[in-house]
Design a protein around this nucleic acid. Structure first.
Lengths: 345, 345
DNA sequence: ATAATTTACGCAACCGATTGCCTTTATTTT
DNA sequence: AAAATAAAGGCAATCGGTTGCGTAAATTAT
């Protein structure tokens, strides 16, 4: 019936053990130069021996900043997002930081509330990808005012100066469209997402410019604006397109969900893919490789984007802060060609 | 050039403003009964007026417990897990808690390190699903010793008494197998996962008992033990099975990834699904509805499991703690019948 | 050998909220 | 009306590190 004391070891315990002051312990544990080499070593060894584990809450309170990185995204259970989070988590943890997550469910109010909550928990930085509804990014200013780095990823605001980790959506849209053109398609439809989100706008612009560059006049009827780019929206749009007098011979969808639904709908209507309808999506979600024929897509380096975001945050402290810093990291995308768009073998 | 003070408001500021002591402010803000009704109201209004936002770090330090719920899982970017996290996040945030995530990459050492990190950040509870490698759950004892609730989800340890939120894997395995039998299958193969994880063991047991209950003698050759149940493992196993002199007429896979790979491999070999080979998976991942023919599967209420886990943690504080409490929540699963196993129409 | 530095460490305030205990005033009991 | 109880708040310690400033001893410079 030995009852363990189970007392938590603090720097005061180490101080008592070695007859040093708590401040010396504190400094020694962080290898502060003003503490002697031998002393430092002795203290660190004793700390380990006693099983000392720092109380990060105390340090955070004192410093008014935690070791937590906040993530603010729309929905966790999306392939791209969960990979992004995974990247943030990996690199953050490797550096001794924790990761706090929050999702807005694509709701603006939730996003504002979550931003506040993360702010209140004194995160030392935040990685954010905007909700569908967000048109105003003022709720991030509180961070910037306190010099807490904000890294926007993927869905970034256009009116706020901060770090950004993005892909070149314009060029990706261009490349996707050009790929279809190279496969011999001429009537290329586009599933465009909500245009207040620059990622969708840019993809669309790339699409339009690619058409023009190849002497194809964009046809308004082939440009479908969608709301959430859901499976259902994709199905409906596809059905409409295929029933036109002059149906398209290709679709470039701004996401894979709608692209997959297009493939399935087309097949249902007896339209051959890619012969009669070539399809390319965006994101390279797992479903892209499973659908039949396999969906061509644009691959996002999601995990890497997460890692780079963390890096920006961790670096921030080291940097001299210039007014209105806004470092933009642009990553490459890749056209993943699969059967759904491969007409020429 | 008006420079905002931007000072953070504390209870001391409210105290000064109203000439009360900080303790009264603190109590009033939590509706402590020993503070007068009017006073409380006045203080709360002033707090709002001044834009007071509590410093949770200070409270956490004092209470030696944060408002953070920790999540410890193997990999974030898996459909089941990301939905689980989503469920935890939703309900936690609704209750004013934050969620800290950590992933082990299915590595035992990482899991131990993450547990330590979460412990050190004074989480008020933890939701955990074990890594593939974990055979020993001692790293969770530190939480229990401090009366920090641990809720194991899905992949739960067998040797530690704590909360559990699980599905009835045995019965799910039984149901899946029985479904195949009802479709007229008699040589049913099973893709079993690593047997030290009880979820896989139980699914396998359900499979075996269902066979026996229907007068079918389990054939060892049809029971394939896998390591990670990856796409590749599934492909290989399927290929092997189909090349047997007496190949199976059905496969019950313990996850969807391997099940989908089985479908694709079978098609590649010209085997008709479900006529010559019926397939059912487990988890009901998004890919299940996309593969052709669509994959039957067992659906997990992932998000709900997350919500219930949070609930357990939040309730914990209210409960009188009895020695070795171990409350188990078992959720229903559902057989989702799709084309891949539907032989009788 | 004495002054000027440097090295090594301690003191004590601080971060912001919480809470056991005590005091004062108001209300109730007998 | 005196005594007992309840109601409303305040005092001060506490949680565990962190850090500006100060000091004594050791080292270097002159």
């Amino acid at each position: 019936m030995s009852k363990k004391k189970n007392k938590v070891v603090t720097i005061y315990d180490i101080a008592n053990e070695l007859n040093y002051s708590p401040s010396t312990i504190s400094r020694a544990l962080k290898n502060h130069k003003s503490i002697g080499k031998d002393t430092t070593k002795q203290i660190q060894e004793t700390a380990k021996k006693l099983g000392y584990r720092p109380n990060s809450l105390a340090a955070s309170l004192r410093n008014n900043r935690s070791n937590n990185i906040g993530i603010l995204i729309a929905r966790i259970n999306r392939p791209f997002i969960s990979s992004l989070i995974s990247g943030v988590e990996n690199s953050a943890r490797a550096a001794g930081y924790n990761v706090l997550i929050s999702q807005s469910d694509d709701n603006y109010k939730n996003e504002v509330a979550n931003a506040k909550a993360l702010y209140d928990s004194r995160v030392c930085g935040i990685v954010a990808s905007l909700s569908m509804e967000t048109k105003n990014a003022d709720h991030f200013k509180q961070f910037l005012e306190q010099d807490i780095p904000v890294v926007f990823v993927d869905r970034v605001p256009s009116d706020l100066n901060s770090y950004r980790v993005i892909i070149d959506n314009y060029s990706a849209g261009y490349k996707a469209t050009e790929h279809l053109i190279q496969q011999g398609c001429t009537r290329i439809a586009h599933f465009a997402g909500a245009q207040h989100l620059n990622i969708y706008k840019l993809r669309k612009n790339g699409y339009i410019d690619a058409l023009k560059a190849h002497g194809i006049t964009p046809d308004k009827e082939l440009l479908i604006y969608m709301n959430t780019m859901s499976f259902e929206e994709g199905q409906e749009a596809t059905s409409k397109l295929l029933n036109m007098k002059k149906p398209p011979d290709a679709i470039f969808s701004s996401n894979d969900t709608a692209a997959v639904s297009a493939i399935m709908q087309a097949k249902k209507q007896g339209v051959k893919i890619p012969e009669e309808l070539a399809v390319i999506g965006f994101n390279d979600d797992p479903i892209a490789s499973i659908v039949e024929p396999a969906l061509s897509s644009i691959s996002h380096p999601a995990m890497k984007m997460g890692e780079l975001s963390t890096k920006r945050i961790l670096e921030h402290a080291d940097k001299k802060i210039e007014q209105g810093v806004s470092e933009i990291t642009v990553l490459d995308t890749e056209v993943i060609v699969r059967a759904s768009s491969l007409r020429k073998k």
